[in-house]
Design a protein around this nucleic acid. Structure first.
Length: 575
RNA sequence: UGAGGAGUGGUCGAAUUGGCAAGACGUCUGGCUCUGAACCAGAAGAUUCCAGGUUCGAGUCCUGGCUCCUCAGCCA
């Protein structure tokens, strides 16, 4: 069984190079940073991680590992308004689950609050920062806009002593939120809005998840991030494109202060996926409005959702390697993720039988009381998985889809008068279709079997075209199966200016099937056990709802389904 | 009317110093098969955003345009 902890199965193959790898290589060749590579993954603990974060995690940890460096996990926890320990814990669990190890390098920006405060005082002393007493509204007006240069605040030229005094009193809690802020003194005329005297500290009279009541002033991202990087000795500070405009400020702050090093910020394009959304705000909306059942709903691209769905972490790592790293906006086809999932699972998932929509089949020429234990490989391509046995008896269930009374062309399954192979067992022939007297619904098939076909082809050399799966009615386990499909019906649900993304929610993204029949060998499957249900897809026992005696399976992904494609085309032609 | 980025098959994405436009996913064919899976073999699909220019030769260099993305939180 594919262990989730086999760290790097699937990421071995170093894909084609990308510009960040090239930069690091060049830096190493040039002897920069003393040959060191140090990265970090810096989440803000105000939400759950999703597939987009996975790209960043894989990149940061991946570069460190590739070049013999280190990657820190650092929480960017500078805003007590929105951040919670619950998220901190979930994020740590997610990164670990993904397969990365930060060793003893778990940090928080809040670890540096004292140092940051010290640096702020230095900035004030060197005239690079000042306390502004404009209101929020005024600051906004003074800042100007894209086309209008900003105006300097009347408080911009306070003396160092006055600034020091005010800042100290801000820290001491003498003022209310919004009364004063600490600002960098840069350039109100700058065409880059980030350089128009950005705010460094604001007053927030909120307890912090980690520092409690120790502070009532909190540093802003732009000030905190670069300094945290420098304090940790980060060499390459990888972030997404929207921070490109912030780089001059990142560099400016570091240039003003006696920091131990000056990390290089490099921006790359964030990952977007078709048929889903990754915006924190929209994810939150889906959860809170009940369109999905929580942050770990298996339809969500959150790491928790993917995990619950049954996606192996190695598949996510592999996927992240394949999407590449560039600066172009992109939307990766979710089929690539599905491919990575199938690839990982094909290799590692034991095979099993599950009948989702059972149709009763009576083998009329099979003795009532006889049970044959048929043997089947657990993994047809990997003998090390061993074999299993499945009981075969007079009454079995097959998939309703595997029988058609009036089959179309190319249908290779069961139909009146036709033969089909029951996988790993006998060839059977459909002799009679029994229907409900009132509704006309097919309730049972009556078939005969060829006793010579267990483990061998028909002696007379006739070809049996179809193979279908089955499970013995007397021995089958009952199970609930949750069929998941894409959450949205369009590739870019958030990209329609005039239409809210919620209108594209796929009404069939979840179908719950009860009364499914699965082979008895799965009776003791613990939660988070993955199988391939042959001919159907990959399934995983639900983390929370499944237990031995009460099996609940999530469909991770279907197998590639050529027949579905043919049927679709035939349907189209018929129309 | 500002600044910073980005444009390569349907989707991602490669392409030393300018030298035959990789690869993957997807699509389509065929083969194999006790999973219509997997696997194997093959195919189609590209005026490299546009227009000029330099050059024996341009995705790459130059000029001019076009389109898209990001930025006006005391969020990150």
């Amino acid at each position: 069984m594919g262990s989730d902890n086999d760290k790097h199965g699937g990421t071995e193959a170093t894909g084609p190079s990308h510009f960040i790898r090239d930069i690091i290589r060049q830096d190493l060749r040039a002897g920069k940073n003393g040959g060191r590579v140090a990265t970090r993954f810096p989440p803000e603990p105000n939400g759950y991680l999703h597939i987009g974060h996975a790209k960043s995690i894989c990149l940061n940890f991946g570069m460190a590992e590739e070049f013999g460096g280190t990657c820190n996990l650092r929480f960017d926890d500078t805003n007590p308004d929105t951040e919670e320990v619950e998220y901190i814990e979930a994020i740590e669990a997610d990164v670990a689950w993904l397969g990365f190890d930060w060793g003893d390098r778990l940090y928080h920006a809040s670890d540096y609050f004292d140092q940051l405060h010290e640096y702020a005082i230095q900035l004030i002393e060197t005239g690079k920062a000042y306390v502004d007493s404009l209101s929020g509204e005024e600051i906004k007006h003074y800042r100007g806009d894209f086309y209008t240069p900003g105006k300097e605040s009347p408080y911009r030229n306070r003396t160092v002593e006055e600034n020091l005094d005010l800042f100290e009193r801000m820290r001491a809690g003498e003022f209310d939120e919004g009364e004063h802020v600490l600002r960098a003194r840069i350039d109100m005329q700058s065409p880059n809005m980030n350089m128009r005297d950005p705010i460094l500290y604001r007053i927030r009279k909120k307890p912090h998840p980690r520092t409690g009541d120790a502070w009532c002033i909190y540093p802003m991202y732009d000030y905190t991030h670069c300094l945290s990087d420098a304090i940790e000795g980060i060499t390459h500070s990888l972030c997404t494109l929207e921070f490109e405009d912030h780089r001059p400020l990142y560099d400016w702050v570091l240039d003003q202060l006696p920091v131990p090093c000056h990390p290089q910020q490099i921006e790359f394009a964030r990952l977007d996926l078709t048929y889903t959304i990754t915006s924190k705000r929209k994810l939150k909306q889906l959860v809170e409005e009940g369109h999905v059942k929580g942050w770990d709903d298996p339809r969500l691209p959150t790491l928790q959702g993917l995990r619950r769905r049954g996606v192996p972490p190695a598949a996510i790592r592999n996927f992240c390697d394949r999407v590449g790293v560039s600066k172009a906006d992109n939307r990766v086809d979710i089929a690539l993720l599905e491919h990575a999932v199938r690839e990982a699972l094909d290799k590692h998932a034991p095979r099993a039988t599950g009948v989702l929509r059972p149709l009763r089949v009576v083998i009329t020429d099979f003795p009532e009381d006889q049970v044959v234990q048929v043997e089947a490989p657990v993994h047809p391509k990997d003998p090390s998985f061993g074999t299993r046995t499945m009981p075969f008896s007079r009454v079995v269930y097959i998939e309703r889809d595997d029988f058609m009374e009036d089959p179309p062309r190319k249908f290779r399954r069961l139909a009146p008068g036709r033969e089909v192979r029951l996988r790993h067992a006998f060839v059977i022939k459909c002799e009679e279709v029994v229907k409900h007297a009132g509704t006309g619904e097919i309730v049972e098939l009556r078939c005969t079997h060829d006793p010579s076909t267990l483990g061998s082809n028909p002696a007379d050399g006739r070809k049996v075209k179809g193979v279908i799966h089955w499970v013995s009615a007397a021995h089958a386990l009952e199970a609930e199966v949750r069929l998941y499909d894409r959450l949205f019906t369009v590739p870019d649900p958030a990209g329609h200016k005039k239409t809210d993304f919620r209108t594209f929610i796929n009404p069939d993204s979840l179908e719950v099937l009860t009364g499914c029949k699965v082979e008895p060998g799965m009776a003791d499957a613990p939660p988070e056990t993955r199988y391939q249900f042959e001919r159907l897809g990959y399934f995983c026992t639900d983390r929370h709802d499944s237990r031995p005696g009460h099996l609940v399976f999530n469909r991770i992904v279907t197998l590639r389904d050529t027949w579905a494609k043919i049927a679709r085309q035939q349907g189209k032609q018929a129309r």
